[in-house]
Design a protein around this nucleic acid. Structure first.
Length: 474
RNA sequence: GGCCCGUUGGUGAAGUGGCUUAACACACAUGCCUUUCACGCAUGCAUUCACGAGUUCGAAUCUCGUACGGGUCACCA
């Protein structure tokens, strides 16, 4: 059996939203599940959208996600080059071959003529399809025009009758009437191929066996198949995947939130958690498990279980999965995703390294992403504590003033500032003030931290330091 | 507007004609535990699978229609 090969084919725009990433993950998993190859190909046929450094960005993203590229611009394989702008002569050659075979033709129509046609179609409220104006030019006419330096494109000749059908691995049978297919452009007048054409040529030349892509291509796949047929090539297996939507139910974009992998990463989400979460968006295993290592995913990924309907990117569930991974982190890795955010938000110059380590580690079980450390620890950095209504209400209960007074004295009397002694101070307060449980801990916690939730109280008090604590208890 | 695809709770989803009085997970709520909160644990949360018809002894699961949502109709990818 031939080796399974999949490809991730982004255009180098320097931005990757989680939907793209998810497609890459699916592609990678399908390849690796079958012991196959994962290829990175850069689709830069639109010269106007190219962004410098985008290839490095893509490499960084994939490598952070532990997606290993077998072949690509920086991983030379035998099917290169892997950047489409370096493959230009190839596309031209194949386009001309198609013309010779009678499956494509030169078209000299100007932008203005097409624009006029398009407008007319719009007025009549019908879909615009190129009218085949240049389809029947004679050899002499074509040569003449080319000699005169007229710009041209090469268009694919579509059948006008019948129905094209193909089977998609997740959507099943899809059929489209041929008369709806446009004589699409294969080679642009600047000599670059269109996306559609370059895709077919490269996928074939690179021996890609499974094409995984967004379902916006479901309708144009028959055009691809017609090209494969014209060349007499084997068609790949198609796997179209539904869209990932934002929380508003709309298409993900730079605008609606942190839809980009790098944004999430920079906020202290762990790549393995992001991958774990994304793979569960629109796919599910046949067990109830939810936490997967890459190895495990490779073992059990089955594209037939990809769902057809779009799914909403839910940051809350990502938070839960990410928190799960954070709990397992060792301190060094935890520091890496938290300390930079602390430094950015607060002045840490007078804090010792030990102090910072202690701070981060008592919050390990309390945060779901790195940057969250900032908001939960602000009680350590601000001078004045402001109580919310819930806290205020609690503090109005009887006897609380006394509890605080007793505790104040206990703290004052501590000589050696250790967690153990602080704990003793709490115990002594329990005895002397005659309060226990919630009525003991909560007033102290609120007074000292301004919050009703947090890590262990003695730890918190220890980190705050004696002066600050006394000050707040006053 | 034509065509294509989709529709199970707030979210991700399982489910492919009877074992489903619809799993599991997130979120939410309540309780237990920890002499506090959180963590953890337990329980609750869709009389119903967009809606309407049909097929069938039996339908979330099959068929048709309607509604809604999305996609697509570029010398963009």
């Amino acid at each position: 059996m031939e080796k399974v090969r999949t490809r991730f084919a982004p255009s180098p725009t320097g931005y990757m939203h989680v939907g793209n990433l998810r497609t890459a993950i699916f592609e990678y998993l399908i390849a690796k599940h079958n012991d196959g190859d994962f290829v990175l190909r850069i689709e830069d046929t639109d010269q106007t959208r190219k962004v410098d450094g985008a290839i490095d960005f893509i490499y960084d993203t994939l490598s952070l996600c532990n997606i290993k590229i077998d072949e690509g611009p920086n991983n030379k394989g035998k099917y290169g080059p892997y950047i489409q702008s370096e493959r230009l002569p190839l596309y031209k050659k194949y386009a001309e071959e198609l013309v010779e075979k009678g499956c494509a033709y030169y078209c000299f129509c100007t932008e203005e003529r097409l624009e006029k046609l398009r407008k007319e179609a719009e007025e009549k409220k019908i879909a615009f399809l190129y009218d085949g104006h240049c389809k029947n030019l004679t050899k002499e006419e074509i040569d003449e025009k080319i000699k005169n330096g007229e710009k041209y494109v090469i268009r694919q000749k579509m059948p006008k009758e019948g129905v094209s059908e193909y089977t998609d691995l997740v959507y099943g049978k899809i059929s489209v009437e041929n008369k709806l297919l446009e004589d699409q452009i294969l080679l642009k007048s600047d000599g670059y191929p269109t996306y559609n054409f370059a895709n077919v040529i490269d996928d074939h030349l690179m021996n890609i066996t499974h094409v995984i892509r967004g379902n916006e291509y479901i309708m144009s796949t028959p055009k691809y198949n017609l090209l494969y047929d014209a060349f007499g090539w084997d068609k790949p297996t198609y796997i179209h995947v539904s869209m990932v939507l934002g929380e508003d139910g709309q298409k993900l974009s730079k605008r609606n939130g942190d839809a980009s992998f790098m944004d999430l990463y920079n906020d202290g989400y762990l790549p393995e958690a992001i991958v774990n979460y994304l793979v569960m968006l629109g796919w599910s295993p046949d067990t109830n498990e939810e936490i997967f290592s890459m190895e495990k995913l490779i073992k059990l990924f089955d594209p037939k279980r990809i769902s057809k309907s779009p799914s909403v990117f839910d940051i809350k569930k990502l938070n839960w999965i990410n928190a799960h991974y954070i709990k397992k982190l060792d301190l060094d890795d935890l520091l890496k995703i938290t300390v930079p955010h602390l430094k950015e938000a607060y002045n840490l110059e007078d804090k010792s390294e030990e102090w910072i380590k202690e701070l981060v580690s008592i919050y390990q079980d309390h945060i779901s992403y790195g940057k969250e450390i900032v908001e939960v620890t602000d009680l350590f950095f601000k001078d004045k504590i402001k109580l919310n209504d819930e806290c205020k209400e609690f503090m109005e209960a009887d006897g609380i003033g006394n509890t605080i007074d007793v505790f104040y004295k206990e703290i004052e009397n501590i000589n050696e500032w250790t967690v153990e002694n602080i704990n003793n101070a709490i115990m002594n307060t329990k005895e002397k003030a005659g309060v226990k449980g919630k009525m003991l801990y909560m007033p102290i916690r609120i007074k000292v931290s301004g919050q009703m939730h947090g890590p262990e109280l003695p730890d918190t008090i220890h980190l705050l330091g004696k002066d600050v604590v006394l000050n707040r208890l006053k």
